[in-house]
Design a binder for these strands. Structure first.
Length: 575
RNA sequence: GACCCCGUAGCUCAGUGGAUUAGAGCGUUUCCCUGCGGAGGAAAAGGCCGUGCGUUCGAGUCGCACCGGGGUCGCCA
């Protein structure tokens, strides 16, 4: 698909090069700020310096000699000081953009940039035998958005849910279940009971060394493949994943694999040996396997002195497995910022061992969530927020707004709308800003229905749908007409905004930043809002204009739905 | 002590070397339903871009040093 702005950029570049004054490698174009009346600019500074000219002089010379292609998207060119400014051709822009969108529908902005390349995304990673809480929501939501974005760019994307289903603490879970029996409840309530059993066991073990020993014994049985331990472990995994799946379904999350840490157990001895053989690690006098002096990073262990393995050991095996299994071009870890040292160490270790030479290893780090008082969330503090409860609460609040704003909707639709709006608010709260920032849990902000909020975006989409629905009913003509009539400033601004999505999609992927897409959705809704106020659609001055505006409205709905879809947010027709 | 992230309007955030006037939302103060959904639109007020040096024709953006907040640092994950 040849997108309007990509073509525009190509034409501008070619036209500048064709003047013979500026070589291709000096043609760096920028998008001017909204206040400047131009769509693409060539700042002449660098080129002028190379040619020994004053920038304004070069810009003026280029403006005088440049030739514009006959039927192209460049409408005008003008030198303004040291800038050479290009403007889009209004009529051709309208035709090109709307044709693109209507041709692609829900796939608008899809590209082949990643064709033939594989990306593995490691995200979500809930802990087995525990409820998902706000600590997992960020990884899950950001990770899924990245998966959607890379898929749209044509990459083969493998999502992997690296379950926390192993390690020393799992022995405690098994010992606690043995001591108190399996929880009798179902779903998240059962997990809540497991958490309580776990806490009681840990408390009891603090003044009873035998309990501690017993837990270690269970963990050993598990690692050795004991059938009873393994069965109990599997029961915990199933219970947890069934509960997690309900959250995933609501969030539009679908993860291809869930190997989990346990999967790598059989490979660990070999991994440790490899590290020793490669001279990257050594065994110290206590028997622990140590890695030190790796790119000035702090020392870390691959094996405890008691022979046990660590998180790092399993992560190392995980990378190697993924490299062999998927042959990826990149592996992306959507993991909290507190683990950035761990991942730097992991990546350095992998490279020191000669793996992943041409494979990008990236940590998409996200900040921590704090409560309204600025305190970290923790079970011990009693301020923990669980994912399912969070979604339920958000949906309940949305439900009461729906009841108030749209009492005429059928009951089933009210429920569906409340779900879309409530869950959308939670998702958007995580995706509208740079993930690196810490987040303070703010219900007002999160469930806002005005301004930069999921609800506003969904509302804008619903208004588009409403216009299209009415157009279909009033019999005065559907979408079509003459697209070159769309030259009103509000129409042009909206068209340009719609045209940006393909580029925005690339930027979001490059920066591992779903918020770039969220930003685009918001800007699009705003432009639509202006257009909506200024340009009557159903009662446009002429049937031809009405038809053209209906195409614009349909395209806006389409593009908005697409943008929201990339973020994992649903866009109801009515709300 | 070392390293990582953050610091832009009262609050929450965009702005990843270029254009006289640094942009949004919330909140505050005003307007706009005889037109398609007011969960909307328009306008105003509000900013030594943490501080100081430096690089550059040009710095919120790059470098260094401080200050403030968050985080991490061999036998948890």
């Amino acid at each position: 698909m040849d997108y309007a702005l990509d073509r525009f950029t190509r034409e501008v570049t070619a036209a500048i090069v064709a003047t013979g004054r500026v070589p291709l490698d000096l043609v760096e174009l920028t998008t001017p700020k909204a206040a400047i009346a131009a769509d693409l600019a060539f700042p002449a500074f660098k080129a002028a310096k190379t040619l020994g000219l004053a920038p304004p002089q070069l810009a003026a010379e280029l403006a005088a000699t440049i030739q514009l292609p006959a039927d192209g998207l460049i409408g005008a060119v003008e030198a303004v000081g040291p800038f050479l400014n290009f403007r889009l051709h209004a009529e051709r822009l309208a035709t090109h953009v709307l044709t693109n969108i209507m041709a692609q529908g829900d796939d608008y902005a899809a590209q082949q940039l990643g064709a033939g390349k594989t990306v593995v995304v490691d995200y979500s990673a809930p802990n087995i035998a525990k409820r998902m809480h706000v600590g997992h929501i960020r990884s899950t939501i950001i990770g899924q958005a990245l998966v959607n974005i890379y898929r749209a760019l044509g990459y083969r994307v493998i999502g992997d849910n690296h379950l926390g289903d192993w390690g020393k603490q799992f022995g405690v879970v098994l010992a606690a279940v043995e001591r108190e029996g399996k929880p009798t409840a179902e779903g998240e309530t059962a997990l809540e009971q497991l958490e309580a059993q776990y806490a009681r066991y840990v408390a009891a073990a603090s003044d009873d060394p035998e309990l501690d020993e017993h837990a270690r014994h269970w963990s050993l049985r598990l690692e050795q493949g004991d059938s009873e331990a393994r069965a109990l472990w599997q029961w915990c995994v199933d219970l947890t994943m069934t509960a997690a799946q309900r959250n995933y379904d609501r969030l539009g999350v679908k993860i291809d694999h869930a190997y989990g840490e346990s999967f790598y157990e059989p490979m660990l001895a070999d991994m440790i040996q490899q590290a020793l053989d490669a001279g990257v690690a050594f065994r110290d006098e206590g028997g622990a396997v140590v890695v030190e002096h790796l790119q000035k990073l702090p020392t870390f262990l691959l094996q405890r002195s008691d022979g046990g393995t660590l998180y790092m050991t399993r992560d190392m095996a995980t990378v190697v497995f993924r490299l062999q299994e998927f042959q990826p071009h990149a592996i992306i870890y959507v993991v909290g910022e507190p683990q950035s040292l761990h991942l730097r160490q992991l990546f350095a270790l992998i490279r020191a061992m000669g793996y992943a030479k041409d494979v990008g290893l990236t940590h998409v780090a996200f900040g921590t969530i704090f409560d309204a008082k600025g305190q970290p969330l923790s079970t011990r503090r009693g301020n923990m927020v669980y994912l399912e409860a969070l979604l339920d609460d958000a949906v309940a609040r949305a439900r009461s707004v729906v009841e108030q704003k749209s009492p005429e909707l059928p009951e089933a639709e009210k429920l569906a709308v409340a779900e879309a709006v409530g869950v959308g608010a939670v998702v958007y709260n995580d995706l509208y800003q740079d993930p690196k920032r810490n987040i303070t849990l703010d219900w007002e902000r999160m469930l806002a229905t005005e301004g930069n909020s999921a609800t506003y975006l969904q509302y804008s989409h619903a208004r588009c749908s409403s216009i299209l629905r009415r157009a279909n009913e009033d019999g005065a003509g559907g979408p079509g007409g003459d697209l070159t009539l769309l030259i009103h400033p509000a129409e042009q601004r909206l068209l340009k905004q719609l045209a940006r999505l393909p580029e925005v999609l690339r930027e979001g992927a490059e920066r591992y930043a779903p918020f770039v897409i969220a930003d685009w959705c918001y800007a699009t809704a705003r432009e639509f809002g202006v257009f909506f106020e200024q340009c009557p659609v159903l009662k446009a001055e002429s049937p031809a204009l009405r038809g053209a505006r209906l195409v614009l409205v349909a395209a806006t709905a389409n593009a908005l739905r697409r943008g929201l879809g990339l973020l994992g947010i649903r866009a109801p027709e009515r709300m």
